[in-house]
C-alpha cells in the first residue's frame, strides 16, 4: 500500500515535469534555453579560496535582446522611452542610436539592443516576468570546457554590431555569450576589481607584485574572464554603452 502511494506520486511527479518542460517549449519562453543546475566554480572570487557554488536550474534567453524586442517594450512602457526616462535610471546616451524615441531603422531590428542601462534592462526583463541573470548564472551558462575563439575580448567591436545569432550556439544551446556585445548581469556590482588589486589576499605575493591586477582568478591566463569581470566593475546602474546589451533569465 505504501509502495503504491509512492509509485503514484512518482508518476505524478514525472508527468508534471514532462508537462512543465513541454510548456516551456511552446509558451513565451520558446526562445529560452533550460540550463541544468550543477556545481560551478566561477572564474573569479573576492575570497582567498575558491568556493564551489551550487547553481539551481534556470531558463535563459537563447539570444541577447534585440532592438525590435526592445522597441515593443518601450511602446508598451512609455516610461522607458528615451525622452521620458528619469535621468537617474540611465545616462545621456540611453538609446542614442535611435532616430527618435519610438523608431529605429528596420534594418537594425535584429541587432542586439545596446545603449541600455541596468535599470532599463531590469525593467525589460520584469515586463516579461523574467529577470536579469546573476553574474554566476551568466558565467555558468557561458562556460565551455573547450576553449573557444574569443578574439573579440582583445578588441571588442563597438561599431556595426552584427545581428544576434552571429555565433553558433554553445554546448548548452545558447548563442552569442561571447563575441557580440558585453552583457549586463543582475549583480554586476558584486565583484570589485580596482586599479590595484594585488593585495586581495592580504599580502602582496612576489609574482603578483609585478603583474598584479588579476586578483583571484581561477586561471590567470583566462583573459576573457578577466576582461568581463573588470568591465562589469566599471559599470554603474545608469551606464549605457554602444557595446553593452543584455539577455533575461527566469526561475523554473
Amino acid at each position: 500500500m505504501k509502495f503504491k502511494a509512492y509509485k503514484k506520486t512518482l508518476i505524478l511527479a514525472l508527468f508534471s515535469i514532462f508537462f512543465s518542460l513541454a510548456s516551456y517549449s511552446n509558451s513565451s519562453e520558446s526562445n529560452m534555453v533550460l540550463v541544468k543546475g550543477s556545481k560551478f566554480i566561477p572564474p573569479f572570487t573576492l575570497e582567498k579560496n575558491f568556493k564551489e557554488f551550487k547553481i539551481k536550474s534556470f531558463l535563459i534567453d537563447k539570444y541577447p535582446v534585440t532592438k525590435k524586442e526592445y522597441l515593443n517594450f518601450i511602446k508598451n512602457n512609455p516610461k522607458w522611452q528615451k525622452d521620458k526616462i528619469p535621468s537617474v535610471f540611465a545616462d545621456d546616451s540611453y538609446l542614442s542610436d535611435w532616430s527618435n524615441s519610438l523608431s529605429i531603422d528596420t534594418k537594425k531590428y535584429n541587432e542586439p539592443v545596446t545603449y541600455v542601462s541596468w535599470f532599463s534592462a531590469k525593467a525589460y526583463c520584469n515586463s516579461k516576468q523574467k529577470r536579469l541573470p546573476t553574474t554566476l548564472e551568466w558565467e555558468f551558462a557561458s562556460y565551455e570546457e573547450k576553449s573557444e575563439d574569443l578574439d573579440w575580448y582583445w578588441k571588442p567591436q563597438v561599431k556595426n554590431i552584427p545581428f544576434v545569432g552571429k555565433n553558433n550556439s554553445n554546448s548548452k544551446g545558447i548563442n552569442d555569450f561571447h563575441n557580440l556585445v558585453w552583457e549586463l548581469t543582475y549583480d554586476f556590482n558584486n565583484s570589485v576589481i580596482n586599479e590595484d588589486n594585488r593585495e586581495i589576499s592580504g599580502t602582496i605575493q612576489k609574482v603578483d607584485a609585478f603583474c598584479g591586477g588579476t586578483g583571484n582568478f581561477k586561471d590567470k591566463k583566462d583573459y576573457p574572464a578577466f576582461a568581463r569581470y573588470s568591465f562589469r566593475s566599471t559599470l554603474k546602474s545608469d551606464t549605457t554603452l554602444n557595446s553593452l546589451g543584455f539577455r533575461c533569465a527566469k526561475d523554473l
Binding site: 543582475y186 549583480d187 556590482n189 570589485v192 554603474k236 546602474s237
Partner: peptide, 16 residues
Amino acid sequence: ILEIASLSRKNLTKES
C-alpha cells in the same frame, strides 16, 4: 535594496 545600493555606487550584495 539592490536598487538603492546600486545608486549609491557601493559594490554591495548580500553575498559580499
